[in-house]
Simulated assay, not measured.
Amino acid sequence: MRVDLFDFDLPPENIALRPASPRDSARLLLVSGDASLRDHCVRDLPSLLRAGDVLVFNDTKVIPAQLEGMRGQAKVGATLHKRLGLRQWQAFLRNAKRVREGDRIDFGGGVTAIAGPRDDEGGVTLTFEGEEPVELLLERAGRMPLPPYIASKRPTDARDRSDYQTMFAREDGAVAAPTAALHFTPELMAALADAGVASETLTLHVGAGTFLPVKADDTDDHRMHAEWGRIDQATADRLNAARQKGCRLIAVGTTSLRLLESACDADGLVRPFADETRIFITPGYRFRAIDGLMTNFHLPRSTLFMLVSALMGRDRMQAAYAHAIATGYRFYSYGDSSLLLP
């Protein structure tokens, strides 16, 4: 399909630079299979879902994966995006032309790394020196890796350490937040439980590739980035049992959805999974694992807008986004949410 079919104009004032406070006060647009659009608040979720529904969350934890350093007299920026080993990460570099294989980059605070070969995704392998766990080094020298559309408008600050982390964050490894779950609070989870809505968690470490633009003119020519995920046997069993009872599985975030669909077999059963996924969902895809999706509003021409168009139909999502823009919904990572129920 032509990528320009997924384009739309977004006024800059619709881009959220801070999250709603409290988190569950964000707006929520309900998009239903009957083509209706209804304006709600995230706190309305218990009344919008059914008893027996299962919300599936991503428990990945964002690490401070953005680093600023020096290679000699040259400034170099690094955004880690994929772990390769105990001390090795793939990274996208700013001023990458100034870095050659074997160069040492000093990120300050005693944190140094040796640049390795370039990879086929445009990044460089960094091997961190010393014996301290890399996670400790990042806590000392790194910053939260805010998306480019926020970082270009304001500097990262101490508040982002908590704002850009979900209440479910447990497994270190993401360099971008599973942002649909940023809207949830303990109070909202308690209200959902009282309404008979269950929850499960899985792990998909979101990579910086999620922000890479689609440069191809046709979706067939786009190479999807890889992200590592895991669903254990017990979780898969509970999800399958819920569906066999007629309950709906509703992914909270496109990351949860992509992992569930990657782990699902042709018979609609979720299997245990521990691997990378490059699943690229565009209109025409037949969903097997999920019955709905809660997600924020995505970038034009992005793989994620293609995904929601595959779930609900491109024309319907273009209409939903036009409504959201016209009525002042806030877009992207810190923005408002939508509930898509085909």
Rank of each mutant, 00 (worst) to 15 (best):
M1W: 00
F8G: 00
P19W: 03
S25I: 01
L30T: 00
S32W: 02
A35W: 00
S47D: 09
N58L: 08
I63C: 07
A65I: 11
A65N: 10
M70F: 15
Q73G: 13
K75G: 14
K75I: 11
L86V: 08
Q90T: 10
L93D: 15
N95G: 10
R98P: 06
R98L: 13
R100P: 07
R100V: 05
D119M: 08
D119N: 15
T125H: 04
T125N: 07
L126Y: 15
L138W: 15
G142Y: 09
D157V: 04
R161K: 13
E171V: 15
E171M: 13
A176K: 01
A177I: 12
A177T: 15
L182V: 12
M189L: 13
A191R: 14
L192F: 08
P213S: 05
V214F: 13
T219P: 05
D220E: 06
M224A: 08
A226Q: 14
G229I: 14
T235Y: 02
T235K: 06
D237C: 08
A241Y: 05
Q244F: 01
K245R: 15
A251D: 04
A251R: 08
R258T: 02
L260H: 06
D267C: 05
R271F: 00
A274V: 01
A274Y: 08
T277H: 12
P283I: 06
G284A: 00
R286G: 02
R286W: 00
A289I: 10
I290D: 01
D291P: 05
L293E: 04
M294K: 03
L299F: 08
R301S: 03
S302V: 07
L304K: 09
F305M: 13
M306R: 02
L311P: 00
R314E: 10
A320K: 10
A320S: 09
H323G: 06
F331W: 03
S337T: 05
L340G: 03
L341E: 00
